[in-house]
């Protein structure tokens, strides 16, 4: 559901989030919808998720972007971790946007997710995170997100929220 909300937001608020020609990383890309829409909006996107979902992700992304995008999206494995510097050194990446939808639910890697968001967020990067916020664990993550980043609420509809975070 948050992926749908984020895609709709990105399509309808291009003056707020202009993806044209921007470098984008998606965390927990899952089925790939956000990556596909961001690519159609002109971004150069790298979609990441766990290795076991990449074949379906790649198939969805290729099927929906081939011949429709200036920059074909890339698909890569990425496990959320505290220690990304060894595998993804900060000197080797600079993203304009880090996108994440439906990544906060009942799982044991919320701290690693936040560490991953922080790792890829540099000055000039905006982390845009869309999620339904309902459970206690969701609220805790939201508080930690606000502590980690300068945070603004881009969109809200009942439980559905889209936050933007930039470097502190």
């Amino acid at each position: 559901p948050a992926a749908l909300a984020l895609c709709s937001f990105l399509e309808n608020h291009r003056e707020k989030v202009n993806l044209q020609g921007k470098k984008v990383l998606e965390l927990g890309a899952g089925t790939g919808l956000v990556t596909i829409v961001a690519s159609l909006l002109g971004a150069s996107v790298t979609a990441t998720d766990l290795p076991e979902v990449l074949s379906n992700l790649r198939a969805n992304v290729m099927r929906n972007t081939r011949g429709r995008c200036r920059q074909m999206p890339q698909v890569a494995a990425l496990s959320w971790s505290y220690n990304l510097e060894s595998t993804h050194p900060s000197s080797a990446h600079q993203y304009d946007y880090v996108l994440a939808a439906d990544v906060v639910y009942h799982h044991d890697f919320l701290d690693e997710l936040l560490a991953t968001m922080k790792h890829f967020c540099k000055p000039g990067t905006a982390v845009i995170w869309a999620n339904k916020v309902r459970l206690e664990s969701d609220l805790t993550f939201t508080e930690n997100f606000k502590k980690a980043f300068h945070t603004s609420l881009l969109y809200e509809d009942e439980d559905m929220k889209i936050f933007q975070g930039t470097c502190r």
């Binding site: 790939g32 596909i36 198939a59 969805n60 099927r63 929906n64 429709r68």
Partner: peptide
């Protein structure tokens, strides 16, 4: 643009109109 998404390979199609 119609976007066709498989949730899991070959099952549960979601269609999103961009």
């Amino acid at each position: 643009t119609l976007i066709w998404i498989y949730h899991y390979a070959g099952q549960d199609i979601v269609i999103y109109e961009s």
